[in-house]
Amino acid sequence: MPNTSSALTLADWRSRLSSLYEVVRSCADPAEGHRHWREGRADLFATHPQSPTAGVPQLRVNGVDYWPYDPTLRFTLEIEPAEVDERDVDGGDDGSVTLRRIGLVRLPEPVGGSLDVWWLHQYGGGIFVPMRDGTAGDGSYGAGRYLLDTAKGAWLGGDDRHLVLDLNFAYHPSCRYDDRWRCPLAPAGNTIEARVEAGERL
């Protein structure tokens, strides 16, 4: 259980992330939204007490690296049915995190493959889409990256049947920077062969 100070700063961190994605969604040009996202994350990483890079001074000063924005990697995808799968994963101090598969999306070529769409039972619920692609361990974190985690504010839009997935917004989980975090990682159904050279990189 966090103390009062850390609880308040964590609430502020999540609020700021949600506000950042709100700005991103308001941008008519996705590339401009991506620029705001990168700048907002750089500021949070450099200054916020809840930053996962708090213990990595060079990243607080220099920021994290990204591949250039690629507009061909932004998709609006229909969520297709998938067999129900439910699993508990270690969430560290937050306890176990329960994931329930609610469907899948198919990525167009040249990316190809599919990604499972999960519902998080924790935090009042939320959509979670991790991805482990061909850059894992060779350009990005070996355990994968996140595309959406709506419980933490990461949401690019959609409706009752579709998700907006922009692979340029792939980002590393906090555990990539600090092993005090325990992050749900990409299951087999969220692994694709293609190298997605977009989003946050090592």
Rank of each mutant, 00 (worst) to 15 (best):
M1H: 07
M1S: 10
N3C: 06
T4S: 04
S6F: 14
D12R: 13
S15D: 07
L17T: 14
Y21F: 15
E22T: 15
R25W: 11
A28Q: 11
A31M: 12
A31G: 12
H36M: 05
W37V: 04
R38C: 13
E39V: 04
G40L: 13
D43C: 02
A46W: 10
T47D: 05
Q50H: 13
Q50L: 08
S51G: 11
A54T: 14
P57R: 09
L59P: 01
V61D: 06
N62F: 03
V64A: 03
D65C: 04
P68E: 10
Y69G: 06
Y69T: 08
Y69K: 08
D70Y: 07
D70L: 11
T76V: 15
E78G: 11
E83N: 07
V84S: 14
D85Q: 15
E86N: 05
D88K: 14
D90L: 02
G91R: 12
S96N: 12
T98S: 10
R100Y: 05
R100E: 14
R101G: 03
I102A: 04
V105R: 08
V105D: 08
R106D: 12
V111Q: 05
V117H: 10
W119Q: 11
L120N: 08
H121V: 03
Q122G: 04
F128W: 15
F128G: 03
P130K: 11
P130A: 11
M131W: 03
G134N: 08
A136R: 03
A136T: 08
G142V: 14
G142L: 11
T150S: 15
T150M: 06
K152N: 06
G153E: 09
W155I: 04
G157A: 08
L165T: 03
R176D: 02
R176K: 13
Y177F: 15
Y177L: 00
Y177M: 00
D178T: 02
W181R: 00
W181I: 00
W181C: 00
P184G: 03
L185G: 01
V196P: 03
E197N: 06
A198D: 06
R201F: 01
